[in-house]
């Protein structure tokens, strides 16, 4: 769906933020991890057309993004920003979610249907007439997710969706990601929460210093202990525990751990 070839970018002459990135994205849900400043957000902004590359190409559905404005790209690729307060523009929850669909020239009726459908997913459909700013922070975050989901784009990218979410909030986000995957959309996220990555994403890409350090099935990526250390990334807790106990295979979830534990006894 997305093809990135030899992509480089720098904000100023001295420091290169991204250099020589080659990536291809299929429909697998993908987590992008790495330290702050590794270039994750920059890559996403380039795909979204919010920044222009110095070198290289990004093709989405075979179309070069460099010829299009960010607003035009909004029909194919959605992005949920990290801070909800930067992205709430309207006075009611319903208007807020309809803002995107109306911008991409959906007719009013369809926009409303899509909006309500998206709000149902985040369980805010009982607050249509409320002022978004009266919602709690985690509700605002869910609202922002709904307002991108309603645009019904093929590709959806999240930037740190789980920050400041408690257990309940994370659970909802998990369900939304699952629902989007079921609709056969490409879901991508920038994230620091490794447990969440292990449980929800098929593919993981590790960025370090503006380059792709690791890329593959999440399980394989989290088995590369040494390389993860280079990128200052730690494997999920359960993976570390299994490894310390000498399990042969890389474990990603509590259930996997329990299954494996039954068929295995630790070395004496």
């Amino acid at each position: 769906m997305i093809k990135i070839a030899n992509l480089s970018f720098s904000y100023n002459k001295e420091t290169r933020v991204l250099s020589g990135i080659n990536l291809e994205f299929d429909r697998r849900s993908t987590a992008i991890i790495g330290q702050n400043g590794a270039g994750k957000t920059t890559l996403v902004k380039l795909m979204k057309g919010l920044l222009k590359a110095d070198e290289g190409k990004i093709l989405i559905h075979e179309h070069d993004v460099s010829g299009k404005t960010a607003a035009q790209l909004a029909r194919t690729i959605g992005l949920v920003f990290q801070n909800p307060n930067d992205q709430i523009f309207k006075r009611t929850v319903l208007d807020e979610v309809m803002f995107g669909p109306l911008n991409i020239k959906m007719d009013k009726q369809t926009a409303k249907e899509k909006a309500i459908e998206a709000l149902k997913m985040v369980e805010l459909d009982d607050k249509l007439e409320m002022n978004p700013h009266d919602l709690s922070l985690s509700e605002k975050k869910l609202l922002c997710i709904a307002s991108v989901v309603a645009m019904d784009t093929d590709i959806i990218i999240f930037d740190e969706p789980t920050i400041a979410q408690d257990h309940g909030g994370k659970e909802k986000i998990r369900q939304i990601i699952q629902a989007l995957k079921d609709k056969n959309k490409l879901v991508m996220t920038i994230i620091h929460d490794m447990d969440f990555v292990a449980e929800n994403f098929e593919r993981t890409i590790v960025f370090n210093d503006g380059q792709v350090l690791l890329d593959g099935e999440t399980r394989d990526v989290f088995s590369q202990k040494e390389l993860l250390k280079t990128a200052c990334v730690e494997a999920p807790g359960i993976t570390k525990l299994a490894e310390r106990l000498g399990f042969k295979d890389t474990v990603l979830t509590v259930d996997e751990f329990i299954n494996m534990k039954k068929t295995y006894s630790p070395p004496q």
Partner: peptide, 12 residues
């Protein structure tokens, strides 16, 4: 950042 968020949701 806010302008980016607008453009991201299709506003010219």
């Amino acid at each position: 950042t806010i302008t980016d968020a607008q453009r991201a949701r299709g506003m010219e």
